[in-house]
Design a protein around this nucleic acid. Sequence first.
DNA 1: CTTATTTCGTAAGGTAACCTTACTAAATGG
DNA 2: CCATTTAGTAAGGTTACCTTACGAAATAAG
Lengths: 153, 153
Amino acid sequence: MSLPYPNVSVTMLVVDLARLLRRRFEAALTEVDTGLTAGEARTLFYVWRNPGLRQAMLADIMFVEPMTLVGYLDSLEKAGLVKRCPDPTDKRAKLIELTPAADPLLERIGEALHTVRAKALEEIPEDSREMLETLLQTMKDSLLQEAARGKQK
Amino acid sequence: MSLPYPNVSVTMLVVDLARLLRRRFEAALTEVDTGLTAGEARTLFYVWRNPGLRQAMLADIMFVEPMTLVGYLDSLEKAGLVKRCPDPTDKRAKLIELTPAADPLLERIGEALHTVRAKALEEIPEDSREMLETLLQTMKDSLLQEAARGKQK
DNA sequence: CTTATTTCGTAAGGTAACCTTACTAAATGG
DNA sequence: CCATTTAGTAAGGTTACCTTACGAAATAAG
């Protein structure tokens, strides 16, 4: 069998890269000993950057199902890292906030992220990095947009 | 809390991108209706590109544990897509080959890969794509190298 | 040769990241 | 004021992995 499409293997390369990056992030997270899983760390990071959101909105920007987020928040709340505060404008809703205890954990997550970045960009020349990061952001936007469209009923 | 490290959020961007790509690939695979999971499709692809390898070697280049590969091969063999042939030089070992039935499946996987690539690169200008792909390959190599070093006892 | 060690594949069982379906309580729109 | 929608959640499933342990065959050591 010959190549059915040009550049097919390039996409497989990207799929492989995605696997490797996720695994490397998980490993780095274990190394800095936060006691958090990748999903929990990602959630903490998003709450840090977007405090006071409702769960549904938070799930939305993280692109996970609300039910997936519930699990992460349960763990993080049990660990005392986030609070679910009642929304004064809607008794059903809860607003997610960090607790002060989250600070040192965020610092460790930052270390893990730094490690992954350093390893991934190790061989990339300085003057290509900014361009690479712009291109990656563009890719993410395209994929997000597609996913968002798929969500609408 | 202020940014503990510069560019930390860029790494989170890459982690997010990895998630999105994996999910997009899984969705695309469902769309082309192969009946395969992402891991199985990835395995089939690798066997296509590297036929006649022993399981241990195949697991090695795919960067999964041998035991993880066993599961994929079990499914693929049950579906009649690969054969485990005895290695004439070592009675313990098995050489993995595609069956003719794999051809149409590979074509569908190719379609799925093509879809993901098209979506991911949608907004990337033509003349940046080659450079992007080179940079991605470089990133993958760095991560692989790191992972390989970690495997040694 | 024959014991000791390594290697090949595998059985069993675990963890994490998700998802789907179905429900309860509160808000809202006719 | 009743019907529908919305916010969060309980329960349970799937996939992708991993770790540990093991039997059989190959290879190294004495």
